[in-house]
């Protein structure tokens, strides 16, 4: 087979795989709902396929734990080797879709100087959409005030097809497992 044919075949099968959405049964990308990113673009979780992913759930007006979550994810980002850093997508999904709109997310990203080539903020249409994602991840949250939530802590590593590689459910835990899981996938 000629080289160009191989390239074309690979490209075709990759695109077919991506558009058919044939992810494994336990892939997070089985969730088909549409999210909005910090640039106002409509995306599905499956759009992340092909990249290793670090995923967490946050809300941006959060006073205490969320900055901790984001700081922990930043620390994790720094632990990755340059090749993994170049490929990884870091996804923060808001569970406060009423307040975390694209402009808010964009502002936050700029303020904290989070590299826009890999940091993606996502917000949903309503609570039902977020609840669905949270239920697949065993992530618990509850509104406790007008703009306040009680919630779990979660940092998740996903493979290129949206399957969970490793997770950390507590703040201030070692990140070795997440780093190893993300790094072997080069």
């Amino acid at each position: 087979m000629k080289k160009w044919m191989v390239v074309a075949w690979v490209a075709l099968s990759l695109s077919a795989w991506a558009t058919a959405g044939e992810f494994p049964g336990d892939s997070l990308y089985q969730i088909k709902s549409k999210w909005t990113d910090q640039d106002g673009k409509s995306v599905t979780l499956g759009d992340l396929s092909g990249h290793p992913v670090i995923l967490s759930l946050v809300y941006l007006t959060c006073g205490y734990l969320c900055p901790t979550v984001i700081s922990e994810v930043r620390a994790l980002e720094k632990l990755l080797d340059p090749a993994t850093q170049a490929r990884v997508k870091i996804v923060l999904v808001s569970f406060d879709p009423d307040h975390d709109r694209p402009a808010t997310m964009k502002r936050y990203q700029k303020k904290r100087a989070l590299d826009p080539s890999r940091w993606i903020f996502l917000t949903g249409k309503n609570d039902a959409q977020v609840r669905e994602l949270a239920a697949t991840l065993d992530f618990k949250y509850q509104k406790t005030g007008k703009r306040d939530f009680s919630h779990s802590f979660l940092v998740l590593a996903l493979d290129e097809t949206g399957r969970t590689l490793a997770r950390v459910d507590k703040a201030n835990q070692p990140k070795d497992e997440l780093v190893a899981a993300l790094s072997v996938r080069r």
Partner: peptide
């Protein structure tokens, strides 16, 4: 909303 934060013990309030 079965997945509210009541008894996980994982966040500040829990």
């Amino acid at each position: 909303d079965f997945n509210t934060a009541f008894v996980t013990g994982e966040s500040r309030g829990d």
